[in-house]
């Protein structure tokens, strides 16, 4: 499986990572090499095999419905690059 420049551009946008056009060819080659490496899995017969969902064999634990968190705006926004009056601030989004 090899991956072309256009696909690199597409997945880079899906992943929200700017990849300058000049780097796309090189990256396509690197990613193709990795995909060629993982393509070995095609050899494995997985007919009827259930995909692993977790290596831990126990039931999902549930929390009780109690309020024991929140109520601390400072904690939530103190690391933010931009904040106003307790809101996070981002460039304007048009819906």
């Amino acid at each position: 499986m090899s991956l072309d420049k256009a696909t690199v551009a597409k997945i880079a946008h899906l992943a929200r990572i700017k990849v300058p056009e000049a780097d796309q060819d090189h990256l396509a080659q690197e990613l193709s090499a990795i995909l060629a490496f993982v393509a070995q899995l095609d050899e494995v017969d997985t007919e009827g095999v259930a995909p692993m969902t977790s290596v831990v064999e126990h039931a999902l634990r549930w929390r009780d419905d109690v309020i024991d968190d929140g109520g601390n705006v400072e904690r939530v926004v103190s690391n933010a690059p931009e904040q106003v009056a307790g809101f996070y601030v981002v460039p304007k989004v048009v819906e």
Partner: peptide, 24 residues
């Protein structure tokens, strides 16, 4: 980028699902 690719539409079964089966 590799991770985004193997999860993306049309490739999930061939890569991620396959890998989780091999993992089993």
């Amino acid at each position: 980028l590799i991770g985004t690719y193997v999860l993306s539409a049309g490739y999930y079964d061939a890569y991620y699902l396959k890998a989780q089966k091999v993992r089993t």
